[in-house]
Design a protein around this nucleic acid. Structure first.
Length: 431
RNA sequence: UCCUCGGUAGCUCAAUUGGUAGAGCGGGUGGCUGUUAACCACUAGGUCGUAGGUUCGAGUCCUACCCGAGGAGCCA
């Protein structure tokens, strides 16, 4: 079974015989000719079955093949302008591996709910296939960026004893009689690890139990979180922009075909190059107010606010120094204005909003303890975290990027749920 | 949790002021030697989300509930 030909490399077999193994994507028939569109995960190719070229049994078989039947086909490979991919196979033999039942997803239009109910089959469609290929490339680029820059991969736990930030709603689970929660971030663990390895990152699933029902939210999503010892906010922003530039440019190189199939305007990605604009929260507020929108000083940005700010630029914009009051307890205060936090959000262009949140962490033990009290968080849950400030505390910073939001932006999608193979949302846990 | 919209054939949708539930795709049967979401003919396929109510008569009007989609909040 190993020495077979993949459709993706069919051009190497021009004017030669080849055997492909795949699934029937669609079929058109014309009396004494059948046109089978066959896919195998690496590509799709037209197979021509002519009545005169095959035995009668084979020809009759192809006449009534259900969509998605699995097939092994041997034939002569030719270049032909009439074939959608430029190449086609003139069949000599067609072996039916399995006759499919009536396939629910037809070549016509369907609603998203129906397609999501059939997500396990929808993955076979060309658009979904392309999105997940892009996702794979983005994840590989993320890992390569950190691996090539001497970061150490440190896996964070999924079960956690208490809220990391105390803000989001967590999924609660029974842990041998006591309560445990599914992680909403690996960050606190990365801070501890950075004091051992210097530069670390984690990449894993993250869970939020908020009842968000929008095209930007999942209850289970993947986040990549670097953390760097001896790093301040400016250094953090340097890393974030270099990182985003790298993954976008890598994806443009590796996934031209897929982005074309997704009809992505790649000119809007080609401009994603350093330096990215860096503006303060106060400057962002001015942009929002100048646009005519009402905004109350000191508030966090809503999604419309983010869109208005990001529309001013042709590449991601980094907004730093938000009011400390709207940010998590571990953010370090700005020495120049303690009402502000040394944090940064990276807003993707074209209305895609926040893809990265991060900043410099509070490294002073006493300040951190009082922040925990201010936020009404249980001190005992953070004893280990406070230890990081007791034994050789240093300035450190990091950020987290939601993979699905990055994929959604880079692919130019309307819904985040198509960026993950099996999405989990407030109303979906199957398939 | 709140706001808006929706639920009719396997799928996508239509049905006029309340008056015999329809089309395309998919399925089935037949036809066609260059099809491009092929095409042509015929054919099968329905508890109109659920439960009540108004009416001679309800897919259509009223009430409650269930489910879904988008948005707000919250966030990546």
């Amino acid at each position: 079974m190993r020495n077979k030909t993949y459709i993706g490399e069919i051009s190497n077999y021009k004017d030669k015989d080849a055997t492909i193994s795949g699934w029937l994507y669609n079929m058109r028939s014309s009396g004494k000719l059948h046109f089978l569109m066959v896919r195998d995960g690496t590509g799709i190719i037209q197979v021509v079955v002519a009545k005169n070229d095959v035995d009668e049994k084979t020809f009759e078989l192809c006449k009534e093949l259900p969509q998605e039947s699995s097939l092994k086909i041997t034939g002569f490979v030719v270049e032909d302008k009439r074939a959608p991919s430029g190449y086609e196979i003139q069949a000599k033999n067609v072996e039916l591996v399995h006759r499919a039942d009536e396939y629910p997803i037809t070549p016509k239009e369907h609603g998203t709910t129906f397609l999501m109910d059939n997500r396990h089959l929808w993955l076979r469609s060309s658009k979904q296939h392309a999105i997940l290929k892009v996702r794979h490339s983005i994840i590989r680029a993320c890992r390569d960026y950190f691996d090539n820059n001497n970061y150490t991969l440190i896996d964070a736990p999924i079960f956690t004893p208490a809220a990391c930030e105390g803000t989001s709603t967590l999924f609660e689970t029974d842990y041998f009689g006591s309560k445990a929660y599914l992680t909403q971030s690996g960050q606190l663990y990365m801070e501890a690890a950075a004091m051992s390895f210097g530069k670390v990152y984690c990449f894993g699933p993250t869970f939020r139990a908020e009842k968000s029902k929008t095209r930007r939210h999942l209850t289970e999503f993947w986040m990549i979180e670097p953390e760097i010892a001896y790093c301040d906010l400016d250094g953090d922003m340097d890393i974030a922009e270099e990182f985003i530039e790298y993954i976008v440019q890598r994806t443009l190189e590796e996934r031209k075909e897929e982005l074309k199939l997704l009809q992505r305007d790649t000119s809007k990605l080609e401009t994603v190059q350093r330096p990215f604009p860096r503006i303060s929260y106060d400057e962002a507020v001015k942009i929002i107010k100048d646009s005519g929108l009402e905004f109350e000083d000191g508030n966090d940005f809503g999604s419309l606010d983010e869109t208005i700010v990001s529309e001013q630029f042709d590449r991601p914009v980094m907004v730093h120094r938000y009011p400390a009051a709207v940010k998590a307890f571990y953010m370090k205060g700005d020495p120049g204005d303690l009402s502000k936090a040394l944090c940064v959000d990276v807003l993707a262009p074209e209305g895609y909003g926040e893809i990265i949140g991060g900043g410099q962490r509070e490294d002073d033990l006493n300040i951190l303890e009082s922040k925990i009290k201010e936020h009404d968080l249980p001190m005992e849950a953070f004893d280990w975290y406070l230890d990081v400030r007791k034994y050789g505390s240093v300035p450190h910073a990091g950020f987290g990027m939601g993979i699905e939001r990055a994929v959604s932006w880079i692919c130019g999608l309307k819904h985040i749920r198509e960026t993950i193979p099996f999405p989990r949302t407030i109303s979906r846990i199957k398939p």
